Every structure is written in C-alpha cells, then in structure tokens.
Amino acid sequence: MNSNKQDGRNITLTATELGELWKNYIGETLLDCVYTHFLTNVDDNRIKELLEKAHTITKKHITKLKEIFTEEQFPIPSGFGENDVIKSAPAIFTDKFYLFYIKETARINLFLFSNALTVSFREDIRKYFDECIDDISELYQDSTNCMLAKGLIIRAPFIPIPKTVKFVESNDFLHKLVGKQRPMASTEITGMYVNLNSNQLGKSLMIAFSQVVTSKDIKEFMLKGRDLSQKNVKILQEFLSKDHLPAPQLWDPEVLESKVAPFSEKLMLYHVSLANGGSLLNFGVGLTSTLRYDISLSISKMVADISKFSNDGVNLLIEKGWLEQPPLAADRDELAK
C-alpha cells in the first residue's frame, strides 16, 4: 500500500479511514444508480435540476474515491453499476417523492460524513470528507427550500417559547405512575419528527420494492419491513397526537403502481439494509435526547425490532452472495499457525 507524506512522515490509511472510504464508495455507487433511473422519469424542471445536482455530486465523490483507492493500491470495491439499474423501466415514484428522497438522503449523509471526518486523521482524507459535507449541506438546503416553496413539507410543530428559565423539581418529569404524562419536551419532539420522516421514507421504498421484486424470499422481507415501518409510524404519530401536535405527511401515495423493477434485487435489498442503518442511527440520537420513560421504552422496543429485521436482511444478502466484505483486521492467531 502506498503512503501519503505529511509533516515529513509517510502515513498510511488507518482502519477507520479505510472503513469510512469503503462504506462511502458502496453508498455512492448505489445512489448513482438510483439517480440515474430517477432522471429518466422526472417531469418537474426544478426537481430535475436538483436530481442532476445530486447525481453530479455522487459522481464527483466516486471519482475521488477511485483516485484514493488507486493511490493506496487498494482494490476498488465492486459496489453497484450499470447492471444494477434498468434505465428503460417506468417510474415507481412520483416527482414529489424524488424531492423527499433527495432531502432525506442528504440529511442522513450529513450525519455519516460528519462521523467519517471525526475518525479520519490524514489531511487529504479529512479534506475529502469536509468537501463532502459542504456538497451535501448545500444539497440539503436546496431540496428543503424547494419542498417549502412547493408546499410539500409540514414543518416541525410549534410550541410556546418559555418566559423564564426553569429547573425540574420532581421525578414526575421522567415518569408518572398515575395520570397523564407531562407534555413532550422540544428535544423529544425533534426525535419524533426525524424518526417519522425516516420510517416513512423506508416504508415507501419497501412498498415500491415489494411490488417489483420477483424472488419470494425478498418479497416477503420487503412486506415484513413495510408492516414494521407502518407499526413504528403509528406509535410515533400517537405520541404527537396525545399532545395535539402535527406529524409529517405520509408519502405512500407517491408510490406508483408499476410492477417493473428499475433496479436489481441486489440493489433494492442492500438499499433497505442502508435504510435500516439510518433508522437505527436516528433512533439512537433520539433516545439520547429523551427523558420520559414511556417514550424511551417505546424507542428501545422499536430499535430491537429494527435490529432483528436488519439482521434478517443481512442474512439474505449473504445467502444470495451479495454482501461485499469490508476490510478486515489481520487474523493474528491464523498467522501464528
């Protein structure tokens, strides 16, 4: 493996840098396929512009990642390519969903790129992830502004601004054994709102994918995930409803009736796997900001259910021979034989 000179020293990539670059490449090549298909079926000019921008960013990242892998003499991951997208297939989503997809994908990627930056040490790798954050932040802003302009987004709930600073005086703030629980805190509402959007994206994807996949086991997996997402959405909506707060809109009507697959079953199954990871990340963040016991217990149960479902998906990928192996640490026991 080649090394990068920095401050007079030769620096090879660390395990964390390898892992983040590898993971980023798999995700970017998947998005490249998704945006390629979306662009063949979009009608709205502004949404088309945003899809083109998202696609250009993805291709830019793929090019840079290939340069890094080549320089480091690291085999370029297989990822996804032309065989995983059917350009001639009809649309399975509306233009409105494309816009929602861009925004939600940008939001989760901001989390992922920020994490990648904090576990990178080499200057060129930090610079790459820093540029990725700038790219995706601008895309998030543009897509959010477009959704607002088109009236396609329900803002997070408004609550009264406190008139004074207050401190918690009783454990009832955490949990009441008898009677109604206190109203949700702003930090808890944030978790509800984000996780509703995340689950609705996943649900819509699995509704669409369940219509077009032909393998029985993958179809059953998609239907199971659809129902799990619906269950989670209902639980989260009920928490908001009890405090008379609005929930984000459903995106199920933006799934069209096509039964023609626009992507390979490998890509669709892997996409759901990535969505599961994003959902677990969102719930984890939400859990850290939640103080009410009843909400924490519900989130913990949802995390357990999603983790089991995610594991089922990984097992399916392995059975199909589709799970690409990330870089591994040396097996010292094996080498010592």
Rank of each mutant, 00 (worst) to 15 (best):
Y193I: 04
V165M: 09
T190P: 00
S210Y: 05
F221V: 01
V178Q: 11
Q230A: 15
A185W: 10
S258D: 06
L236P: 02
Q181F: 13
Q181I: 04
V213T: 13
F209Y: 15
K231F: 12
A247Q: 05
I235L: 11
M192P: 03
T190S: 12
P157E: 13
K224Y: 08
D217A: 08
D252E: 15
E254C: 10
D217H: 06
F209S: 01
L236G: 03
L223N: 10
I159S: 04
P253W: 02
V165A: 15
Q249N: 12
D243C: 10
S229T: 03
S241I: 09
P248H: 06
I207W: 00
Q181H: 09
L174E: 07
V165Q: 11
L174F: 14
G202T: 00
N197Y: 03
P183F: 03
Q211Y: 04
V165S: 10
D252Q: 14
Q200V: 07
K219G: 01
Q237S: 08
M192K: 00
K231M: 12
P157Q: 09
P248D: 06
V168S: 05
K176E: 07
L240T: 02
D243L: 07
F239N: 02
T187P: 01
T187A: 13
D172Q: 12
H175F: 15
L177D: 12
L250W: 01
L201N: 03
A156E: 15
N199P: 03
L250F: 09
R182F: 13
K180P: 01
D243R: 06
R226L: 13
K163Y: 07
N195F: 04
K203T: 06
K234C: 00
D227R: 10
T214E: 12
E169V: 10
G179S: 03
L240C: 01
K216W: 00
V255Q: 06
Q237E: 12
